[in-house]
């Protein structure tokens, strides 16, 4: 290997029974870069990130962190290597406040000996500072996460992962359920995380969201890779065409034209 990358997937293959979910998928990401994984529903995006984040194990191919082969048997292993995944369901409890959610499972504490309590003042000030640094405007760390908009929740989840030392941030369709404006807000935080030196893997089915933020694009279709492109090698139009299934779409248009002619 000539260069080592922060996280690299090499010819990842995954079967579910006799179904080939992924076949020979390769890509990589470095610190301060965004690699986008694009694909329609059923293309294998979820299977791929589940392997990267340690939920599933690849049947063939290898994962390398800093050039060394790793075998994740659980999400905990991946987290130990600094790979954090922000899922669509966000791992946030809607009825709990922003600061309680931010530190859930890793509460800062103070006290004497066995009598320990959560340092709420410190937690709130860290939440304010961290979110502020990413330009996220949480009015009040005491408000329940359930009262935040979808974009704000995604942003808090990203800020949390970055704060807890994520070197690689895997974002599972962070913009798919959002309106145009909210999606823009989340994309801004993706770039902010990148600028803080985090390697980002951004999964989406929307090339319009991927192109402005990505450095590298991997297009998946029915479990196979249609190629990995640096930003300089591809424009938005070509990316969209590939995403939409390229030749398949052209055939479909042809058929529709034929039907229209018959009528």
């Amino acid at each position: 290997m000539t260069t080592t990358h922060l996280l690299e997937a090499d010819a990842i293959t995954k079967y579910y029974g006799n179904i080939v979910a992924l076949k020979g998928i390769s890509t990589y990401v470095n610190a301060g870069e965004v690699t986008c994984i694009l694909g329609d529903n059923g293309a294998g995006k979820s299977s791929f990130i589940k392997i990267l984040s340690g939920v599933h194990q690849a049947d063939d191919g290898s994962l390398l962190v800093d050039g060394e082969a790793v075998a994740f048997t659980s999400p905990r292993d991946a987290r130990a290597k600094g790979i954090a995944t922000v899922y669509q369901d966000l791992a946030m409890v809607p009825l709990m406040s922003v600061w309680r959610n931010f530190f859930l499972g890793a509460e800062p504490r103070k006290g004497l000996g066995p009598l320990q309590w959560v340092d709420a003042a410190k937690a709130k000030s860290i939440v304010r500072r961290e979110l502020g640094e990413m330009g996220i405007d949480i009015r009040d760390p005491d408000q329940p996460v359930g009262t935040l908009s979808g974009g704000e929740r995604q942003s808090v989840a990203i800020a949390r992962a970055v704060y807890f030392g994520a070197r690689v941030l895997i974002l599972d369709e962070p913009t798919s359920a959002l309106g145009v404006k909210q999606a823009g807000v989340v994309l801004k935080y993706v770039l902010q995380a990148r600028d803080r030196g985090v390697a980002v893997i951004f999964i989406t089915h929307n090339p319009h969201h991927a192109y402005p933020v990505g450095d590298r694009f991997v297009i998946l279709n029915r479990g196979t890779s249609l190629g990995s492109y640096e930003k300089s090698q591809i424009d938005l139009e070509e990316l969209t065409r590939l995403m939409a299934g390229g030749r398949e779409l052209a055939e479909l248009q042809h058929e529709l034209a034929a039907i229209r002619a018959e009528i």
Binding site: P94, L95, M96, V118
Partner: peptide, 19 residues
């Protein structure tokens, strides 16, 4: 900290386990 865990165990046990 236990109180935080109580809230999360009732609010969304899966999310709590994930973190």
């Amino acid at each position: 900290r236990f109180g935080n865990w109580i809230y999360s165990a009732g609010g969304d046990p899966n999310a709590a386990r994930n973190v």
